[in-house]
């Protein structure tokens, strides 16, 4: 039920997957929205603060997810041929790498001043400054590119899930919605 099995994802992995998907998509939309806010907009400071707070929580989720993933068996891929199974594996790897780059670069933008980053005014995360000039520029450019790339990957990932559901008619999507009994 909680943990993965040979044929299905467990509830923890399912919750991690969908929570991350919803939060990252939401932060993408918030990010696009907030960079064009006028200086006198009430959200001018609120939106970036929310973006950073949620972003740092997603980093926490991501770290937990990595530990959980390597401690849990992965359900067998359901691809109809070796090519499809390889593509699925490659896509999952890219999603993980993209998410890592997105989260790391976001953290490094907020870190660039060396000031710790508040999370919902509840606690703060220490900053990490790298020995590069204009960390905010490098990290900012990476963050923008990875955000768009990850969204494109996520759309392809979703399309593949629908292909499994409606064309291959297998349980790929269903087993990511609720744990299945073997």
């Amino acid at each position: 039920m909680w943990r993965n099995s040979q044929h299905s994802y467990g509830l923890i992995q399912i919750l991690l997957h969908w929570t991350t998907a919803i939060l990252v998509t939401g932060m993408f939309a918030l990010g696009i929205y907030m960079v064009d806010l006028g200086y006198y907009d009430p959200w001018y400071h609120r939106a970036p603060a929310l973006h950073k707070s949620v972003g740092l929580l997603v980093i926490g989720l991501f770290l937990f997810r990595l530990v959980w993933r390597f401690g849990d068996p992965q359900p067998e891929p359901l691809g109809v041929n070796p090519w499809s199974r390889k593509a699925a594996g490659g896509m999952h790897l890219l999603l993980y790498l993209g998410l890592f780059a997105l989260l790391a670069s976001g953290y490094l933008i907020a870190s660039a001043d060396g000031r710790s980053i508040p999370v919902f005014d509840v606690f703060s995360v220490p900053a990490l400054t790298l020995p590069v000039e204009n960390q905010e520029e490098l990290a900012g450019d990476v963050h923008e590119v990875t955000a768009w790339s990850l969204m494109v990957l996520a759309v392809l990932h979703g399309a593949a899930a629908l292909k499994h559901r409606f064309i291959d008619k297998d349980a790929s999507l269903a087993r990511m919605l609720w744990p299945r009994r073997d």
Partner: peptide, 16 residues
């Protein structure tokens, strides 16, 4: 112009 420095990295990026 890229060397603008207002002691706030995110603002500096915005100014650039």
């Amino acid at each position: 112009t890229a060397s603008i420095n207002s002691n706030h990295a995110e603002r500096d990026r915005h100014l650039r």
